[in-house]
Amino acid sequence: MSLNFDLIMPFIFILVKIAIVIGVTMLHVMYCTYFERKVIGHMQVRLGPMRVGPHGLLQPLADGLKLFFKEDIIPTESDKAVFKLAPIIFTFAAMSSLAVIPFYNGFVVANINIGLLYILAMSSLGAYGVVMAGWSSNSKFSFLGGLRSSAQVISYEVAMGMSLIGVMLLAGSLNLSEIVKAQQQHWYGMYLIPQCVGYFVFLTAAFAETNRTPFDLPEAESELVAGYFVEYSGFRFALYFVSEYIGMIVMSSMAVVCFWGGWTLPPFITNAIPALLLIPGLIIFLAKVYFHIFLFYWVRATVPRYRYDQLMALGWKVLLPLALINIVVTSIVKFLVA
């Protein structure tokens, strides 16, 4: 009996962890949409949602309910099986990335050795959801959106992977928790300082990966109306919507884990003000994540959209060479120091 209990316990523990992570993330996603509308609203001399609840605080709930009860429309000419599968793949890819993110010391659903590669793999898998949606809708606008998106995700995946190699070299590990701990070994406590070029490339590629302005070509509302998910409605649309915000949270978490020292604060700050050590790691982590999410919104309110060829040129001619130079310089420095 006790043997069985020992076997079952870790499973239950993991299931609880998964439930907590998904539940909490969904809540965050809900309020990310609210946060976005408020931030952009105030940047654009308006108030954002104000009607549902005090200061519109219940607006995300109302939106969710509305999407849930909306009629699910499937175009007659669409490829129905693929049409239904696409949002599931997209959501699956986004949600499973959450599994390897260390929210604070020890709290990670799956502490695997190749966490970094796993996240890259999952974000490429998301491209399938987009391409399938674009193709199966049998609409020209979503087709163009799907084409654009696949080209964009593939191009920026390369730059993103390359930009993270510097971090891998310095940390000597692909495990995200290990990367955070490795950063604590140095006085600066975050790879942002030695890897600022890598961070810049990563951040730019993250904007492109999540289809955010200025790289929101796949869903450019003024050109392609809404791009690949133009034919989706109701809850299928909500799945895309939610997954994009999860993608944003995942990308921000990646940036925090790889470059900002995760749930820790740099030693040179904590040495100066020891009281800061009392702040729970989760709060530090979330604050850093929300700073990045704010950055996403800030950029959206500021810049216009790139054109397709300019986007490709930026990816292949600027970001990729920068990332490669960064790798070379980092290896040389590491070799010389060691």
Partner: peptide
């Protein structure tokens, strides 16, 4: 025009 190119804030200003 700016909104078409993607600069949303100018539109609301």
């Amino acid at each position: 025009h700016a909104l078409d190119i993607g600069a949303m804030t100018v539109f609301l200003y």
